[in-house]
Amino acid sequence: MKSIGFLGLGIMGNAMAANLIKAGFDVTVWNRNSAKCAELVSLGAHQGDSPKAVAASCDMTFAMVSDPEAALALCQGPDGVMAGIGDNRGYVDMSTVDDKTSKTIAASITQAGGRYLEAPVSGTKKPAEDGTLIILAAGDQSLYDDAKPAFEVMGKMSPYLGDVGQGANMKLVVNMMMGGMLSIFSEGMSLGQKAGLDGQQILDIVDAGAMANPMFKGKGAMQLKEDYTTSFPLKHMQKDLRLAIALGDQLDQPLPTAAIANEAFKQAIKAGFADEDIAAVYKAIR
């Protein structure tokens, strides 16, 4: 069984790495705040000294960080992944970034003698814990084949989407739709309750019809309870909407609904809800 590195142990990365350890993989972990490694070390992981050291000692290294800037920082510099990758070892970046960032990282890893796969995920904290993420892989097909056993532990579906950039693009399309849906859903919940309707009855009626979906059911329940425990930070959804709109500009594709949803999430960040769950956009809308 191949040795695996895992860089970035936030809400998603911690759960994903834990599933790999529990499945019997030989896992070495690293996080900028090293205290976050302790729980995984207690499960049987090794702790790496730097991204460079992890990439140099593992057959393939996975990364899960918050945004394009963090993804680039992880790779660059004397202690970055690029400095350690070499010898045809693999680097799988599961962060949500734009296609330009992904292509920049791909070129750097390849130039350093490694293989690169982008593999952003669709899913939040619970699917990460349950190993039911949807993994959107693109890039080096031999690395995709090598990573497949790990993907099968972390997710329920891991299609191969072709050249680097297509995984990033698919993730932005999916999250753009999610952000737009959550924005109009929050408007509907707010309007209905201000009109004197019962919030739970709104949810029950939506759930019984053609609009039924797990996100409305789960996020609606959170909104009624005023429980915004974070499974997908609101600031990250706004980042994804911004990146999707930028892709639309690049491709001359009008995205008026996405632009309006982006403004709703920007207002929620301005109101102080950046680190709460995406469901908290409701607080800014109502």
Rank of each mutant, 00 (worst) to 15 (best):
F25N: 08
D26N: 15
D26M: 10
V27L: 12
T28K: 13
T28L: 11
V29I: 13
N31S: 08
R32L: 09
R32F: 13
S34E: 14
A35Q: 14
C37A: 13
C37I: 13
A38I: 11
A38P: 06
A38N: 12
E39W: 15
E39A: 15
L40P: 00
S42D: 08
L43P: 05
H46C: 07
D49Y: 09
S50K: 02
P51H: 09
K52D: 03
K52Q: 11
A53Y: 01
V54L: 01
A55C: 06
C58L: 01
C58W: 01
D59C: 02
T61H: 02
T61S: 08
T61A: 01
F62V: 11
A63R: 00
M64G: 04
S66G: 12
S66I: 03
P68T: 06
L72M: 09
L72E: 06
A73C: 03
G77W: 05
D79V: 00
V81R: 01
M82Y: 09
A83W: 01
G84Q: 03
G86F: 15
G86K: 15
D87H: 12
N88V: 14
R89G: 02
R89Q: 13
R89W: 10
R89L: 12
D93I: 10
T96G: 04
V97N: 11
V97T: 12
V97W: 12
D98L: 09
D98Q: 13
K100P: 00
K100Y: 12
K100T: 14
T101L: 05
T101Y: 15
I105N: 04
S108L: 07
I109V: 08
I109H: 12
T110Y: 14
T110Q: 15
A112V: 05
G113R: 14
G113S: 06
G114P: 06
L117H: 07
E118G: 03
A119N: 04
S122A: 15
G123S: 07
T124S: 15
K125Y: 10
K126T: 13
E129S: 08
L133W: 01
L133C: 06
L133H: 01
I135H: 01
A137V: 07
A138M: 08
A138C: 07
S142E: 10
L143Q: 05
